[in-house]
Design a protein around this nucleic acid. Structure first.
Lengths: 151, 151
DNA sequence: TGACAAAAGTTAGATGTCTAACTATAATAG
DNA sequence: CTATTATAGTTAGACATCTAACTTTTGTCA
């Protein structure tokens, strides 16, 4: 056992992020980065979402999400609207241009999965997901335990 | 198969990096981040290293490595020296203060591994490393193939 | 040997992300 | 109802990282 799983995951993370940037640029979406993809992903699923929901889904902070949506709005892929229920809330929706990219994003996402899973058999792929899920759950549990301690 | 391994690795990466920052701060090393730890790790192993070697080991670019070493020098953990063999090269060495931290870094590193591996059996830990190694090798091979294509 | 390419390192500028502090609105408790 | 607290979002400032361009030294090859 080399205890190098963290390092390996870090490297894989770096390479996949870098590759994704290249794919997005190749799709004509220069200035759009993987985090923007996460924001769009939720909009493709739900149609609309508040800043709060987008931040939670993309695992980014609220200020970061503000910047992400600023950019997407600037390039015309989404639009901010006032919520009717809650005057504090902003509702983000896809524009027609944003909706038009659904297919491209699905294709890139599929290509990424195939890139990562291709050296693995079906069983190995499932095993990897299972092990990573175990590790992540444990880390999140540990984190929650520690933040609860400070009460 | 959920094809979510990339997302899982990204989350695990985020959490471990954040935890590491906390540990470093708790060890009195505020301003020192995981990348500085990578730089120091090579120095703990080799005693001295050039900027080039440090960059390669830490998987960071040369400009980033310049900044990392600037910081470590500023807080007194390393020292830059001119190489005797090559006037272009800078040799980085640990100071006594840097050397004194060897134990703390080893402890943090061990604690990290235990945190990540604790929910896994010995077999599962080995399996995880094997699968991640396979995925990483494949990604690196693909990357090399693509960059070779542009000749 | 002399010119040109490669390599080591730094500087400058851009970018993505974070924390802290702020504004505005909603919810709650006396 | 009013005062306090909580929540949604933005702004400001810091920081780690990157790419591009530059300087200096070394290697190559005609």
């Amino acid at each position: 056992m080399k205890h190098d799983a963290v390092m390996l995951m870090g490297r894989i993370h770096d390479l996949t992020q870098k590759w994704l940037r290249g794919e997005l640029a190749a799709a004509g979406l220069s200035g759009i980065v993987p985090s923007h993809g996460d924001v769009l992903a939720l909009l493709f699923m739900k149609g609309e979402a508040t800043m709060h929901e987008l931040a939670a889904f993309a695992h980014r902070t609220k200020p970061t999400t503000t910047v992400l949506v600023d950019k997407l709005e600037e390039v015309g892929l989404v639009r901010r609207m006032q919520s009717e229920d809650d005057a504090r809330s902003v509702v983000v929706v896809l524009t027609a241009e944003g909706e038009a990219l659904r297919g491209s994003f699905a294709a890139i996402s599929k290509k990424l999965a195939s890139r990562v899973y291709s050296p693995l058999s079906k069983d190995e792929g499932e095993m990897l997901e299972k092990l990573l899920t175990k590790v992540l759950s444990n880390l999140e549990a540990a984190k929650n335990a520690e933040s609860a301690k400070s009460d």
